[in-house]
Simulated assay, not measured.
Amino acid sequence: MTRLIVLIYVCLSFAPIARADDRLVRLFAPAELVESGFLKHLLPRFSLKTQVRVLIVSKGQAHDIAFGAEGVAVFVGPDTAWHMQVLAPQHPGVQRFTKWLLSDVGQRTITSYAPDSVQMFDLPREPDTDSPELEFVGDVATGRDLSRQLCGRCHVVSETERMNDIGSTPSFFVLRTLANWADRFQTFYVLNPHPSFTQVQDVTAPFAHTRPPPIVPLEMTLDQLEAILAYVARLEPADLGAPLQHQ
């Protein structure tokens, strides 16, 4: 009986620690970004929505996410393109933060930081160059239907379904504003959380018997992915606010 009581005490003692770790994300950001005041605007709004706390750490300290010159481009300003490097992709809090930052709500939070009524940060946009426009050979109508069938349970994929998304999941229209949108769609099956439930024929390895997918699997072929890309390429990128302004 005594051993049972001790075992229960030990389990209860360690359980809150694990949950606390899941709700704490350590973020490194260069001094100029911290001093801009932007993170004091951004991070509390994420924490209020998710109950996940983000702790800013100093250079050299262990961290789960870093803002800097490497990784995925997430915002621009002032005069700097900021990227996000994810060092702990399996951390539940990190996954929530990255999904939130790329969601409609997160994107609006980025562009709404305007001290003295001057917008300081904007979203990455495709450069205005003469580079050839990306073309995909898939059938657009088929891509639209596949997007609704395979992706519509989490993402808004068409104008008629604007209110049917998961709040923390970016719409196809928001994703189209990103300079690397095509890369993201072409390799989506390796970007969290997709690997845990996605199978692309002749590309991804089968799920391990000991780790089945947490939801109904998403299964597709490369030809179907090409059709989805052709459809997404025709979408008008979301209007996420006024262009970046400088004083």
Rank of each mutant, 00 (worst) to 15 (best):
T111R: 15
M84P: 00
P16G: 09
K40C: 01
L240F: 08
D122E: 14
V10W: 07
N192P: 12
P212A: 05
H91A: 00
P237R: 05
V86Q: 00
L235C: 10
A29T: 00
R19I: 15
L240Q: 06
G138C: 02
V34T: 11
L7Q: 10
S117A: 15
T111W: 05
H209T: 15
R3G: 05
V54T: 11
L43Q: 06
H91I: 07
Y231C: 08
L222R: 13
P193W: 08
A141R: 04
H246P: 08
S171E: 04
R96S: 08
L7G: 01
P217E: 01
T109W: 04
F172M: 05
L244A: 03
K99H: 11
D145F: 06
A182N: 09
V174W: 00
Q149A: 13
T2L: 13
T177Y: 03
G106H: 13
L244E: 02
T80D: 06
I17T: 07
V74M: 14
Y9I: 15
I65L: 04
S196E: 11
A208K: 11
A88W: 00
P92C: 14
P237Y: 04
L244M: 09
L43N: 11
I215W: 08
D183I: 09
Q149I: 03
V200E: 05
H194F: 08
V200Q: 03
S168F: 03
E159H: 02
R162D: 06
G71S: 00
C154M: 10
P193R: 09
E236G: 02
R184C: 09
W100S: 06
Q61W: 05
R53Q: 15
S158G: 04
P44Y: 11
V216P: 02
E219K: 14
R19E: 15
A179M: 03
L244H: 03
W100N: 01
K49E: 14
S112E: 05
K99D: 09
Q224G: 08
Q107M: 15
R184K: 12
T129E: 10
T50L: 10
K49D: 08
G152A: 14
V156S: 02
P89F: 02
R144M: 10
V57L: 02
L175Y: 00
W82M: 09
E226W: 11
A88Q: 07
Q224K: 11
A205F: 14
D202G: 01
F188R: 02
F185N: 08
F121V: 05
T210H: 11
V105Y: 12
V76G: 00
L4F: 11
D116I: 13
I110G: 01
R108T: 08
R234S: 12
G167L: 10
L222G: 12
G167S: 09
P195L: 08
V140W: 00
A227V: 04
H83L: 00
F28A: 03
T129S: 10
T160R: 09
L43I: 08
V25G: 10
Q107A: 12
F197W: 12
P115T: 02
